[in-house]
């Protein structure tokens, strides 16, 4: 499988999970929420300061259909995380030039890779 095809498939799976499957997720409290309400921790909970933001609580404000609202917010989330994360990782990544990075030379695997490229 080519990298391009693999990456496209991986993204498609994420989009389907967030956009479609998420509608069928359990709406029960998660482990922490359950323990917090059982043991009296939740009494001190404060509302989220961005509670009324456009995508607050995994919905899109103004869309009443739960399936559409939740699914759309999931798709937007996948897109935003991909852009922010991908941008960060692309910026941080090791560039091709051999031996340019002193930190990379300390890694025993890297010199062989760079020398192979050179």
């Amino acid at each position: 499988m080519t990298s391009k095809r693999f990456f496209a498939g991986f993204l498609l799976v994420s989009l389907i999970l967030a956009g479609v499957v998420s509608y069928y997720a359990s709406s029960n409290p998660d482990g922490l929420e359950k323990v917090a309400s059982d043991k009296g921790i939740s009494a001190k909970e404060k509302n989220h300061s961005l509670k009324d933001s456009p995508f607050g609580d995994y919905g899109v404000k103004g869309i009443d259909n739960a399936r559409l609202s939740g699914g759309l917010s999931g798709l937007i989330g996948v897109g935003v995380v991909l852009l922010v994360g991908g941008g960060l990782f692309w910026g941080v990544r090791r560039r091709g030039s051999a031996g340019a990075d002193p930190a990379a030379e300390q890694d025993e695997k890297v010199p062989s890779e760079t020398s192979r490229k050179a």
Binding site: F10, L11, L17, A25, S27, G79, L82, G85, W90, V92
Partner: peptide
């Protein structure tokens, strides 16, 4: 780097699935 971006997106999607 692209795989890492896609992995972050996958983790986000999977975290929606309680």
């Amino acid at each position: 780097a692209p795989l890492a971006g896609l992995t972050a997106a996958f983790v986000f999607a999977a975290q929606m699935l309680n």
